[in-house]
């Protein structure tokens, strides 16, 4: 079955060449007349104030951490889901406990305010 991955590799190559080609071709074809105003970062017509790379809300880290937990849960559930009908009730009980633990974690995060945005 590993042979079926070869078309994917070819497709990756085609897609990459296509994407890079677009950048290169437009770079060759397009004119280039930079002025100080043109190469200024856009800030609704004002001269940009301060630096962009400032600190941002910690909420985004919270989302990222929660994502890792629950995305891993999804990954763990996939093998069980595929074989669920063969594995039967014992696996169902095991998965129920697994899901219940994570659901408890979600409720805890919710009640602690980790999911609030304002």
């Amino acid at each position: 079955m590993s042979g079926s991955y070869i078309p994917l590799l070819i497709l990756f190559g085609v897609s990459l060449v296509n994407a890079l080609g677009m950048v290169v071709v437009s770079h060759i074809l397009s004119p280039r007349r930079p002025t100080p105003q043109k190469s200024m970062a856009y800030e609704s017509g004002m001269i940009p104030l301060g630096d962009t790379r400032l600190r941002f809300s910690v909420k985004f880290y919270m989302v990222a951490i929660s994502f890792i937990v629950f995305d891993l849960e999804t990954i763990f559930l996939i093998p069980w889901a595929v074989e669920m009908r063969e594995l039967g009730w014992s696996a169902f009980v095991a998965v129920s406990i697994f899901v219940a633990v994570l659901a408890f974690g979600l409720v805890y995060e919710w009640k602690k305010g980790g999911l609030e945005w304002d």
Binding site: L29, S30, R32, P34, S39, P48
Partner: peptide, 13 residues
Amino acid sequence: KNLIKEEADPGTA
């Protein structure tokens, strides 16, 4: 049009 249009790259990017 997009292929032959001038690209305004920000200098600070």
